[in-house]
């Protein structure tokens, strides 16, 4: 069953064509890897899907609904969540607050309920904290929960970025280079976690990564991008042996 549909997406910046004629479908519970050289348009395509850019042409359909004109926050509330390639931690907020911010439909975000500090506000907060604790333990950030996020290392910031996105409990998660700067041992466990979430919680993933080995390992489908367009699409093996992809990106790796 199709969860996400990109139809003829195009995005230009002045004279630069960043994304051009990009169309593909992602099925529910699929893990789709996106690869391609620097400047291929991967992050721009993600921003089009998440609503941070408006496409010049084309549409985005999520869960049967045309969401092309929806704001980013509305897409998140429908279950489509993105992470940032360059971790956008909230430096002046503590790690725990970064996590709690991501919980959805929080009753305490309403002014009156917050002012009254009602029991539903407190209960929600308690449950959210438990979830945040579990995720922070897994990401090895638990000991840093009361630290300002600005004091984390580069890799820890990427992990917090991932934790925050998971905290939002998405149906479809767009991960922009989640493993960049993360040590190999933890990378392995992150990959495992992604596959577990797919199996146990029916989550769907779209993952941009330059770590080809990691992408080939977890992806059901791989999309190869080059110069703003989709150059190749298929199983990891198909894309890996595609002549055009070899030439444009993979080069000597095979």
């Amino acid at each position: 069953m199709t969860l996400l549909e990109a139809n003829g997406l195009r995005k230009t910046f002045g004279g630069i064509v960043a994304v051009e004629e990009v169309s593909f479908e992602v099925d529910r519970t699929e893990i789709v890897g996106v690869i391609g050289p620097n400047g291929a348009g991967k992050s721009t395509m993600f921003k089009l899907l998440a609503g941070f850019h408006k496409p010049d042409e084309g549409t985005v359909v999520f869960d049967g609904e045309d969401i092309t004109d929806l704001a980013p926050n509305d897409r998140t509330q429908r279950g489509l969540v993105r992470t940032f390639q360059i971790a956008q931690e909230l430096t002046g907020m503590r790690v725990m607050d970064n996590m709690l911010l991501a919980s959805q439909n929080n009753p305490g975000e309403k002014v009156l309920a917050a002012a009254a500090n009602t029991s539903s506000v407190r209960d929600f907060e308690g449950t959210a904290r438990d979830r945040a604790e579990e995720l922070l333990q897994f990401l090895e950030l638990w000991d840093l929960r009361d630290e300002y996020a600005g004091n984390l290392s580069g890799g820890q910031r990427k992990l917090l970025e991932l934790g925050r996105a998971l905290m939002a409990d998405p149906d479809l998660l767009l991960l922009d280079e989640p493993m960049a700067g993360v040590n190999p041992d933890l990378t392995d466990r992150l990959l495992q976690r992604i596959m577990d979430l797919r199996d146990e919680r029916d989550m769907t993933f779209l993952v941009v990564e330059h770590d080809i080995e990691a992408i080939m390992r977890i992806s059901d489908t791989v999309i190869g991008m080059h110069d703003g367009g989709v150059l190749s699409k298929g199983t990891p093996e198909e894309v890996q042996s595609d002549e055009r992809m070899l030439e444009a990106y993979l080069g000597g790796e095979v």
């Binding site: 926050n73 509330q77 992470t83 907020m93 917050a114």
Partner: peptide, 26 residues
């Protein structure tokens, strides 16, 4: 109280970088 509530947390996130709360559904 407002500042230390979930409502205030969203305000603080806006202060830090308003793309993040936007991406998190606020």
């Amino acid at each position: 109280r407002l500042s230390s509530s979930p409502f205030g947390r969203v305000l603080h996130a806006i202060r830090e970088n308003d793309d993040v709360p936007l991406a998190l559904g606020k």
